[in-house]
Structures are given as C-alpha cells and as structure tokens.
C-alpha cells in the first residue's frame, strides 16, 4: 500500500456510511434538511434541477480537488484540465488540496471565488440558478476524517436527494440526510467559481465586492470592471462597486467616466473621504483644478484613516490653482473649463 487510492475507496465505503448516517440521524436533528423542506413548502425552490451539461472529470489518485475545480471552471467556459489545476492546488505533502487554495485557484483563472454561507438551501439556490457548487465532504468519521471534494449539479426535492459529480462517479445520488452528515464536518463548506459578469444567486454586496477586489489584485482588470458593473446592476447604490469601477476606469485612462463614478460614490456615501479624494484627484488629472478644490476640501474635512492622502491631494491641487493665470479662485468656483498647463 504505497500509494493510497483515496476517492474511489471513499465511494465504496459510502454505502456503509449511509447506513451509519441513517442510524445517527435518528438521534440528531438535521436543521439543514428541515430548512430545505421549509423552502420547498414555501415554493422557494424549483422542485427538480439537473445541470446535465456540467462536464465530468473522473478523478485521478487524490486529485478530487483539481477534478472538482476543473468541473466548475470548464462548465463556465474556461479551457483548462485537472492536470493544469493540480499544479495550482494539489499539495503532495498532504496528498490533497486545501480549501484556501481551491478559492485562490479560482481567482488565478479570472473567476470570482465565492464561498457560500453554510446552508444547503443556498447551495440548492445556486444550482437552481445554473451554478454547480463545490462542496467539501468528510466521507470518513470525525476522529478519522477523510476529506473529499465533490460538485453538486442537481437535486430533487420530492425524492429528497442531491446529485453529485464525485470521484469516479458521473452521477451520484445522495439523499439529503446522509449528504448533511458527510458535509457537516467541513462546517458546511461550499464554493463557486463564477466568471464575471455573472453574479452568484446568493451573493451579498460586501462579501462579493471583497471577492472582486481579490481577483483584481491578481491583475484581472477587465474581469473586475465587469464584476463591478454587474454589482451596480443589482445594487445601484453600492459604494464599493462605484469606487471599484471609478478606480478601474481611472487606471485605464477613462478619466471623465471615472469622475462620474466617484461623483455617484460620493452621493451614495457622503460620509467617506475616499470618494471625494478620488474625485478630486481625477478632476485634477483632467486639468479641472478649480472643480477639484471642493471635493478635495470635503475629503480633508471628513478625515478618517486616509487623511494623509486627502491632505496631499488637496495641497497639490491648491498649489496648481494658485499658479493658474486668472487667479480669481473662490471656494465654489463654477468656471474651470480651462486646461491647466503641463505640470
């Protein structure tokens, strides 16, 4: 037994575990399953969904992580193989893949890594919206965990089961109760890899915005901008999305559009200095020094942890305004079409 075969054996012992789960579920309540039944009774979910087009990658030894990731990435139209993903997530010393690296690898491929709330209803909502969900299961026991990534590709509320792409099984049906039992030890961990501009059905503004920033940091500027725009379609007042969009437009040189986004941001959250500071700086970059003065002063007046930046923006603008030819500067000067001289 030099090389352990992980997931195929997991599948074989799963049958035994189903019995054990049935025994145990008799004593413990299953809040996740109850929540799904409640959602079913309130007609909040389609009765039956199967994402039959989601591809299947039978997993190699220990490689359920790369296989699960390839399943969702290829399903969303990315050309990638489990072998290429093993290079990004598989950890030889652990003979497996870490959750953090599964999220990080989704990002490396230009997808937004979205970790779901620990809720079966949320997983089913995503599947109903057409998004296959990666889940981390413990198919062993709590003291002897046996971790396994699988992809939820469907469910049937009337039969009470989920459908998985798992290990070497293309279409594995698991009833809700044992699924809850296997899933519980990972604290109901589930993730999506979502290419912008598509938004997860269960996304919330703050969490999704943070996930977009993480992808943008890796250099996916175009994807990030699409994601911010998608956020604004769902949350038109989102401060984070407006700031992200403004910064992204500024970085690509579309200054007038950037100024517009920052102006909207400053209206959406008039208590935060960042929108005013960035609006002032963008107007300054456009050469509209006089218009830049007001927001720059506003940013300094609001203070906050980034006061230093606001102050240096303001003093740079004040220096330029003082150098303008017709030196009739009032606090709220309306005129300012004149282009500034080169600095």
């Amino acid at each position: 037994m030099s090389a352990g075969r992980f997931c195929p054996q997991g599948a074989r012992i799963a049958g035994l575990l189903l019995l054990a789960a049935a025994l145990l579920s008799g004593c413990a309540g299953l809040p996740q399953v109850d929540a799904v039944r409640a959602a079913r009774d309130r007609d909040q979910l389609p009765r039956r969904v199967e994402l039959a087009d989601v591809p299947f990658f039978p997993q190699q030894e220990h490689h359920c992580g790369p296989a699960a990731l390839a399943t969702v990435l290829v399903a969303s139209g990315t050309a990638i193989t489990p072998e290429a993903l093993a290079e990004q997530v598989y950890l030889p010393g652990r003979e497996g893949s870490l959750q953090v690296e599964m999220l990080a690898a989704a990002r490396r491929n230009g997808h937004i890594a979205w970790q779901l709330a620990p809720s079966l209803v949320d997983v089913l909502r995503e599947v109903a919206a057409g998004n296959p969900v990666i889940v981390l299961l413990n198919v062993g026991l709590r003291p002897m965990p046996f971790w396994h990534y699988a992809v939820v590709i469907g469910y049937d509320l009337d039969k009470g089961e989920v459908l998985l792409r798992s290990g070497d099984q293309r279409r594995k049906r698991v009833p809700f109760a044992p699924f809850d039992f296997f899933w519980r030890d990972s604290k109901y961990w589930a993730m999506l890899a979502m290419p912008p501009p598509r938004l997860p059905a269960t996304a919330n503004e703050a969490g999704y915005g943070t996930a977009v920033v993480a992808v943008e940091r890796l250099g996916y500027a175009a994807e990030a901008r699409q994601a911010y725009e998608a956020m604004l379609a769902r949350w038109p007042e989102s401060y984070l999305a407006l700031m992200g969009l403004g910064n992204s437009l500024h970085a690509s040189g579309r200054l007038a559009a950037a100024a517009d986004a920052f102006r909207r941001a400053s209206l959406a959250k008039p208590t935060d200095a960042a929108a005013f500071n960035n609006l002032a700086q963008t107007l300054a970059d456009l050469g509209q020094w006089r218009e830049a003065l007001e927001p720059a002063r506003q940013a300094v007046a609001l203070g906050g942890p980034l006061l230093e930046t606001s102050q240096s923006t303001l003093s740079a603008i004040e220096r330029e305004v003082a150098r303008l030819p017709a030196n009739k500067v009032r606090k709220s000067s309306k005129k300012g079409e004149k282009k500034a001289r080169n600095p």
Partner: peptide, 10 residues
C-alpha cells in the same frame, strides 16, 4: 482539511 487521507485512515 485537505481533500485526501492516508489508506490506513480509510
């Protein structure tokens, strides 16, 4: 947790 375990654990 890492998506695998030793054969002995199985």
């Amino acid at each position: 947790p890492a998506g695998a375990a030793s054969p002995w654990a199985v």
